[in-house]
């Protein structure tokens, strides 16, 4: 043993009560994540403008005449597609994009680096929540403004209707976000994560009433879609943006908003549990 320096400080210089602030650092992480995202101009445009671009395509292809629905309440094709496009944003922002970011952080050393600092794990998640919220809100605002200005979409005028829009979008995005994080944690590489994440988005958007009328699908495909949040987000948003006469065209002739809340809530809980089980801070080999 080497001789001890008796006068050496033994941790007295440290404030033993020091703790990093989870919320403040989480907010800082969110600001940094959003800043970094905005610097990537191509994905900024591809992600934020994807729903409005899809919307514009549908609007242009099908024209401006009211052609869908019962005779007394016909709407334009654009109006009919609008809730589906809004719903699509939840799985894009929550699942596809976020799982890509988390998988990248897992494999490029980002999580490992942060886990070696005093940053609380929860602050990392607050940062991810921040960028996801930024994406879904950004996508939705661009879609709403663009569709209103250029495609003549009618918007609801009551606070209650917008409250429904808010809880559906935020709830579904949160559910997809926790599922997407768990998905990113079981991926074998960042590349496979971003490639595989496209599949559920493609399949679910086709069977959940986003691109096609939901009741026009085969029964068994409807049953599959009934188990996932996208179908219930789309129907919930239809209840807001389509005339009430359209309710009769829904399965069971009802918007079933209660079911929307239940399915989305269930996925949120299951996703949280899966994330808790699969997320490692830092990642383990």
């Amino acid at each position: 043993m080497t001789t001890l320096n008796a006068g050496q400080q033994t941790g007295a210089a440290h404030n033993a009560a020091w703790r990093p602030s989870t919320l403040a650092l989480g907010g800082r992480r969110a600001a940094t994540e959003i800043k970094a995202f905005n610097r990537d101009g191509l994905s900024l445009i591809l992600i934020l403008f994807f729903p409005i671009v899809m919307m514009a395509l549908f609007g242009t292809v099908f024209g401006n005449d009211p052609s869908v629905g019962p005779p007394e309440a016909k709407v334009t094709m654009a109006q009919y597609y609008f809730p589906g496009m809004l719903a699509l944003g939840t799985i894009l922002s929550g699942f596809q994009n976020l799982s890509g970011y988390v998988a990248a952080d897992r494999f490029n050393g980002g999580i490992k680096r942060l886990a070696g600092t005093p940053l609380p794990m929860l602050s990392y998640f607050i940062g991810k929540m921040g960028v996801t919220l930024y994406l879904i809100v950004g996508q939705s605002i661009i879609l709403v403004i663009g569709s209103t200005l250029f495609l003549g979409i009618d918007l609801p005028t009551t606070w209650g209707a917008w409250l429904t829009v808010a809880w559906l979008l935020l709830g579904a995005t949160a559910a997809w976000a926790v599922v997407g994080t768990a998905f990113a944690c079981i991926a074998k590489s960042a590349e496979s994560a971003s490639t595989l994440a496209v599949m559920p988005v493609l399949i679910l958007s086709f069977i959940s009433g986003v691109y096609f009328q939901f009741t026009g699908l085969p029964e068994w495909l409807q049953q599959v879609a009934n188990l996932t949040p996208l179908r219930w987000t789309a129907s919930g948003l239809r209840s807001v943006f389509l005339p009430e006469q359209f309710e009769l065209a829904e399965p069971g002739q009802t918007w079933a908003l209660g079911m929307s809340a239940m399915v989305i809530g269930l996925w949120l809980v299951v996703g949280l549990i899966l994330t808790r089980l699969t997320f490692k801070w830092p990642p383990q080999k």
Binding site: H14, R19, A36, G109, G110, R113, G116, P118
Partner: peptide
């Protein structure tokens, strides 16, 4: 170990390619 321990150590990773779109000072 608690965050205080992490504040007393520094780690330079073997290979990391994160933070590409941040500036050095940021």
């Amino acid at each position: 170990a608690p965050a205080l321990f992490r504040s007393r150590i520094g780690i330079v990773l073997q290979e990391a390619t994160d933070m590409g779109t941040l500036k050095v000072a940021e």
